[in-house]
Amino acid sequence: MKAVLVIGLLLMLTGFYGLMTRRNMIKMVLSVAITEVGLQMVMITAGFIRGGTAPILTEDITELASFVDPVPQALVLTAIVIGVAVNALMLAFIIRMYGKRGSLDVRDYTDSKW
């Protein structure tokens, strides 16, 4: 499943690129979101085992090796929720900042520097 890994890492790079080049704050948050999706894909790949099935037991327990690793899935679950929570918070910051200055350009918010 290297394909997924590659996609994930490419998405992360795209996110980095966006974070460095975009001046619109909403786009910066979108970049973070893109990076996070990429990262989560990498994380899922890390737990993937070829031929494994979802880690849900049935009444008749089958061969153990036939499951994918459940731990990364649990971690990704947490990561997704945390990521969305932080992004929402950042958007709240943006809304409030926009209310102050009416701009989404990050360059308009350099009050504290040096």
């Binding site: 499943m1 290297k2 790949t45 890390a46 737990g47 993937f48 085992i49 070829r50 880690p55 849900i56 037991l57 049935t58 327990i61 153990l64 090796a65 499951f67 690793d69 459940p70 731990v71």
Partner: peptide, 25 residues
């Protein structure tokens, strides 16, 4: 890529049912 379950994952898959009784590990 993983070729098999790691230490704690194996534990969860093997003992999870008897320890906690949950189907969804």
């Amino acid at each position: 890529g993983l070729s098999g379950l790691g230490e704690i994952a194996r534990h969860y898959m093997e003992k999870g049912r008897e320890e906690l009784g949950a189907a969804n590990i």
